[in-house]
Amino acid sequence: MSEEIQTFTTEYLDQCAHLYIEVFNGEPWSEEWTFETAKARLFEILNTPGFVGFVFKHDELLGFVAGYCKQGQKSKSFYLEEICVRSHKQSQGIGTKLLNQLMDTLTAMKVTSVYLLTKKDGQAEAFYTKHGYQRSQHLILMAKRF
């Protein structure tokens, strides 16, 4: 079977939830996702208005990208919620192919910017930097725990 990129639909939800657990419960994230919580998270993203997402397959599902468009006062932006590639397949171009497919689609939709959150100073930041993303000089992440 050759590699293919397809639209992320509910058909892929269970496979993507399993992949999400594999990647984000491992290093460097060390999170504690269950199948139920991962599936619920991806279901919420998939059902957000303006959703755009793709899966990468080569004999099996190896990665996905997902997020949604948001209308601003003058243009549309895209919030990149998740990009996830099977751990042993990272650094082989799958994430780049998914990101390129996403960017082609967003360009056709007249989206003018993409933003995301990721761990700083790690492999993920290096991946995004390689693809032209940079730390925002105008925005900061603020949080409140309760």
Results as ranks from 00 to 15, higher is better:
140 I>H: 09
12 Y>F: 09
7 T>S: 00
3 E>L: 11
105 T>M: 09
29 W>G: 07
35 F>L: 11
73 Q>F: 15
129 T>E: 13
141 L>K: 15
53 G>R: 02
31 E>L: 05
144 K>Q: 07
61 L>N: 06
95 G>F: 04
118 T>K: 09
54 F>H: 00
5 I>E: 08
100 N>F: 05
21 I>W: 03
2 S>P: 11
23 V>F: 03
96 T>P: 04
112 T>F: 11
57 K>T: 10
29 W>M: 04
68 Y>S: 14
59 D>P: 06
8 F>D: 00
45 I>N: 04
66 A>W: 02
99 L>E: 02
71 Q>T: 14
40 A>W: 05
100 N>R: 09
17 A>L: 08
9 T>H: 00
32 E>K: 12
18 H>A: 04
140 I>F: 12
1 M>L: 07
75 S>Y: 14
104 D>C: 07
16 C>Q: 00
117 L>T: 12
40 A>N: 13
102 L>T: 05
41 R>G: 07
73 Q>S: 14
94 I>Y: 01
89 K>R: 13
139 L>A: 09
108 A>N: 13
67 G>E: 04
65 V>W: 03
22 E>A: 14
120 K>C: 12
135 R>T: 10
133 Y>K: 08
115 Y>P: 04
145 R>M: 10
18 H>R: 06
86 R>F: 14
109 M>C: 10
24 F>N: 06
76 K>M: 13
26 G>L: 06
102 L>F: 09
91 S>H: 07
117 L>V: 14
5 I>G: 08
132 G>V: 08
53 G>L: 03
64 F>C: 00
113 S>Y: 09
